[in-house]
Amino acid sequence: MTRGAGTAVRVVLLVVLLLPAALIVTGSLRRLGLPAPSGLELLPADPSLSSYRDLAQRVPVGLLLRNSLVVTGIAVPLTLLVASWAGFALTQLGERQRRFALGAAITLLLVPLPMLWVARFVLYLRLGLLDTLVPLIAPALAATTPFTVLLAYRAFRRIPATQWEAARLEGASAWQTWRRIGLPQVKATTTAIAAIAFVFHWGNYLDALLYAQYEDVRTLPVGLAELIELDASDQPVVFAAAVLLALPALLGLLVVQRTLLSTTDRAAADMD
């Protein structure tokens, strides 16, 4: 394939992927009450934020946002700790324990989610945690996804083992070695794990649907899902909701982009 053709493929891909996103953002700026546009409208003639104001009147955005921030505010740091600790420990535990844990992590990636629903429901029911925010935060206890643990493990494994041994001989505990020697050297991966955790918990609709439907604990995805029933003429409001929900997650993407998706991935993870 020639260079020109390669570039053309990239441009087409970019347009296909980015054009709808652009249309959604500009569409959300269309003044409410106007008839639907008759063709593709790249930018509304008279942009306004009226759809966002309307959205705030239809759903309690303040409450939804507060709940979403509580969930992500607890679940993201928790995921980081659980995943980073486990990944760090796995680099230094015995060969057999490491194989077992890594094998388990990969096997767990193959368990369909529905397999967990009924028992989790019963668990939360028994503990009196249904219709609280706890079921939304709980996945962080298991590092949100085994992926985060595998990522942390890979990052710590790149640091020569003599550094752990040196720290240990100097009298550092496992925790001190993680905190003072390990963690400062894997900042890029840590940020990527935080981004992955944020994206999951910010958009987590399913767990709310299953275990937390009570009005007061609704998060942003739950509240905005109710707009699906909307009348089609309110398209700008639907767009506004999509933008509101997607924007923070896309900011998370920027973080992932600079580490996991970057060509300097390994160098970045080693350097920082």
């Binding site: 020569p160 003599t162 550094q163 041994e165 040196a166 720290a167 001989l169 020697i181």
Partner: peptide, 9 residues
């Protein structure tokens, strides 16, 4: 201990 490669942090 002085490690091979020194293992400086």
């Amino acid at each position: 201990m002085v490690f091979q490669g020194y293992a400086l942090f």
